[in-house]
Amino acid sequence: MKAKSAVTLDRVLSRMGHASRTDTREAILAGRLKVNGRVIRDPECWVRPGRDHVQFDGLPLKPARKFYYLFYKPKGVITSHGDPAGRKTVYDYLGEERRWVFPVGRLDKDTSGLLLLTNDTEFADFITNPGSRVSKTYLVKASGLISDERIEKLTAGVQMKRGDWATPQLVRRIEDRGKYTWLEVVLAEGKNREVRRMIEAVGFKVLKLVRTRIGPLTLDGLEVGKGRPLGPAEVAALKRSGGRQGL
């Protein structure tokens, strides 16, 4: 029987910021972890942080330095550590020293724009929790000319095909260009393919989608496929930007 304070070994390692859950499991299976002097190859092994002595590559397990990275994801790249089909992932753009970070939320393959990566699980949970109200802003190119009435419907909240609701903070027309409508959409939640599905709910399709902002962070100064570390002031500003102060 596990103690109330016990957690699985893979979770201990990922919480301390040394690797993603996937990489953590691989390290454990490879025999790189010891618990109380014994090599453990079971990622689901229960350990008691602060009581059990855990070693990683022969050294006592200590929290890794927290790292926060802002990346301009290109279209056609998947937000995953690996892909069985051999498609390019965001990790193909990162240096070796950043391969132990994980994405904060997801952008689908056909969406470009801002993506946060970190090894700080509490920070990631805060940013992705809808209750934190950290806004994400998108530039949308939609098929056809969307009427003011349908934009008002989107703004008020719209039920999508799966039965769930999209409740954006803002939907505004930027311009009509030819046969297309360009919109700015601001969300504080992160449902799967939400922008695409909410536009489909009013009878149109998304032709181009770019995430331009996360809280106070923007694409300014970033080239497609490039990124940069976040400074302490930027991380603090992100934590303050939500409607719930949780960190």
Rank of each mutant, 00 (worst) to 15 (best):
R106W: 12
L107E: 07
L107V: 12
L107R: 08
D108H: 02
K109L: 14
K109R: 14
D110H: 07
T111S: 15
S112E: 15
S112N: 02
G113R: 08
T118Y: 06
D120E: 08
D120G: 05
D120A: 12
T121G: 13
E122Y: 09
E122F: 11
F123D: 05
D125C: 01
D125L: 15
D125H: 10
F126L: 15
I127C: 03
P130M: 14
S132I: 14
R133V: 11
S135W: 08
Y138T: 12
Y138N: 09
L139K: 05
G144T: 13
L145E: 09
L145S: 02
D148P: 00
E149C: 04
R150L: 13
E152H: 12
E152V: 10
K153R: 14
L154A: 12
T155M: 14
T155E: 04
T155F: 08
A156D: 09
V158F: 06
Q159T: 15
Q159M: 13
Q159Y: 00
M160W: 04
M160Q: 06
K161G: 04
R162F: 14
D164F: 09
W165K: 07
A166E: 08
A166H: 05
T167L: 15
P168E: 11
L170Q: 11
L170H: 03
V171E: 10
R172Q: 15
R173V: 13
I174V: 15
E175C: 11
Y180E: 15
E184R: 01
E184M: 01
V185D: 06
V186E: 11
L187H: 01
L187G: 01
A188R: 08
E189H: 02
E189R: 06
E189K: 04
G190S: 09
K191A: 12
N192I: 11
R193T: 05
R196A: 13
M198F: 07
M198G: 05
A201D: 08
A201K: 08
V202M: 04
G203P: 06
K205C: 07
K205D: 13
V206C: 06
V206N: 02
V206P: 00
L209M: 13
L209P: 06
L209G: 03
L209Q: 03
V210A: 04
V210C: 07
V210P: 01
R211A: 14
R211Y: 08
T212L: 05
R213H: 05
I214R: 01
I214K: 00
I214F: 03
G215M: 12
P216R: 03
P216Y: 11
P216K: 09
L217D: 01
L217K: 02
T218G: 06
T218E: 09
D220G: 06
L222N: 02
L222K: 00
V224D: 07
V224K: 07
K226I: 09
